[in-house]
Amino acid sequence: MVKILEKKQLTPSIQKFILEAPLIAGKVQPGHFVIVRHSEKGERIPLTVADFDREQGTITIVCQGMGKSTKEINRMQAGDFFIDLLGPLGTAYPIKRLGTVVCVAGGLGVAPLYPKAKALAAVGNRIIAILGAQRKELLIMSAEMESISEKVLYSTDDGSFGHHGFVTSPLREVLQEEKVDEVLAIGPVPMMAAAVKVTKEFNVPTVVSLNALMIDGTGMCGGCRVTVGGETKFSCVDGPAFDGHRVDFDELAKRQRYYREMEEAADHRCRLGLEGVKE
């Protein structure tokens, strides 16, 4: 049982939780993720560790309500308990002094981006952040990103804040104006695919972090396989961060859509003709 110490709403569909998890807090590195389960019937949900405090023994996770389990998670309150928490999982993102790093995030992508950006800033990198969302109210964790970045550029799909359009336009402008040593791009698959297309033109190394579907998170099921440079990799153990120029985003997008109708059906509590199946 893992206690929720604090909860904060970031947008109507995105909630931030601070969990009491001393063992994981002592080990976690930027880029690691955890798997949570909120109830006996819940899915195993992989979530990036968005921040951590080794002294307090806490980790921060940010969850977007998409399917039934994640929506139920987002209804949990401070003082409630997750029944399972496994971690830290995945390969840590290597923190090196590179020079100028452009950190691009779309929507929920800021959550996995922030700990890496923070660690990159701490070893002396110059951080330029580009944060995008559908509209102003859906931009999250901008204060955190402002605190570690030299400048933060914003874009919203509806133009309600910052640049009107996608993150790719400000990204292109920055790459035209500056010598950039690395781009870190995290967000929805179409956003990462578009960002990578731009950075390829400028030949700037680009790291992406993938949110493939997974079950165990320990390399056992292979459900999270992605094609990187023509080779099959497991997101959970080989990733979740990969060289963005080599990822097959088209395949990833299709794999992520596989269960969508079923998830929506479950969320609407439709029975799908499964009555009578014995437990």
Binding site: K68, S69, R269, V277
Partner: peptide
């Protein structure tokens, strides 16, 4: 096999 009673499809 008990979906949607259990959340994993």
């Amino acid at each position: 096999y008990l979906f949607p009673k259990y959340d994993t499809p």
